[in-house]
């Protein structure tokens, strides 16, 4: 395993996938919209609501919420479309049969999409600063940086899972219909204490919940001393998702290859 990681080809494959997806996202208006415009509009909406309600102390929720809204929307939209895109361009069969493992190609591309989606956070902070004179107060800079790294890993892993699922059905994009469920359960713009007690345990099954708690620990809007707990929770749940993503990927791709269905549903 270690020797394989040392293989230059592994890193080259990852880097190529990463670079390709980054370029593709930059050149595609829809991704630009998801990363730049959607979080900006969300930031204005939530910022206005908190301002007219006189709850300016909640603007931290708005900035993190709008940023993460863009991160998740753009990255997962891009990730889910990776295999679909290869299929449409007719390159999926080649990728599946060349020596570079397809999993690494997809991993590199989901990482590219994840890094590109980071701009959403910058956009939401900039919009809040301009529109509401909001100044980001970071209580713990290291925890904030850590939260960004952990969040990127989490988003990449969930992207992998969605990407694999898109092989199964032509209606794969309908999975986006449940994004708002994820946004509600992860307390994107409000604390999860607002939800009924009976569904609160479900919130902790989502990696987004842990990422957002870690962000807020960095900003100091939740108990900052618990950042290690949030990090551990985030890593643990991401590991479970990675395991599931890898299992789904292997099963789905293997089945599609055996049944000669890589290029069609």
């Amino acid at each position: 395993m270690f020797s394989r990681l040392m293989d230059r080809g592994v890193w080259y494959t990852l880097a190529t996938g990463f670079k390709l997806q980054l370029y593709l996202n930059i050149a595609t208006p829809n991704y630009i919209s998801a990363v730049f415009f959607q979080p900006a509009v969300m930031a204005i909406l939530t910022g206005l609501i908190f301002t007219v309600s006189g709850k300016t102390e909640h603007l931290d929720y708005a900035v993190v919420g709008a940023g993460m809204f863009g991160v998740w929307n753009s990255n997962l939209y891009a990730s889910a479309g990776i295999i679909q895109g290869e299929r449409r361009f007719g390159t999926l069969e080649f990728l599946a049969t060349t020596r570079s493992p397809l999993f690494l190609v997809i991993l590199g591309k989901t990482m590219g999409a994840a890094v590109f989606s980071l701009f959403s956070l910058v956009v939401s902070m900039a919009v809040m600063a301009v529109a509401f004179q909001y100044r980001l107060h970071v209580a713990n800079g290291w925890v904030f940086l850590l939260s960004i790294v952990v969040s990127m890993i989490t988003v990449t892993v969930v992207g992998l899972l969605l990407s694999s699922l898109s092989v199964v059905t032509r209606y794969y994009y309908r999975i986006f219909d449940f994004f708002y469920l994820v946004f509600i359960l992860s307390g994107l713009v409000f604390p999860i204490d607002l939800l009924p007690r009976c569904i609160q345990p479900l919130c902790y099954l989502l990696p987004t919940t842990w990422s957002i708690l870690l962000y807020r620990a960095g900003l100091g809007t939740v108990d900052g001393d618990r950042w290690m707990f949030y990090t551990a929770g985030s890593i643990a749940i991401t590991a479970v998702y990675l395991f599931v993503a890898f299992f789904v990927y292997r099963t789905v791709i293997h089945k599609a290859r055996v049944e000669a269905r890589l290029g069609r549903y």
Binding site: F50, K55, H58, R174, F178, Y180, I184, V189
Partner: peptide, 26 residues
């Protein structure tokens, strides 16, 4: 079937999401 299984729940969840933001704010 997708309208009832995914699209309609999406719209209802979207409405709930924005309502919860308003609940938290005001």
């Amino acid at each position: 079937h997708l309208y009832f299984l995914t699209w309609l729940p999406n719209l209802i969840l979207q409405t709930l999401f924005y309502t919860l933001i308003a609940l938290f704010a005001g």
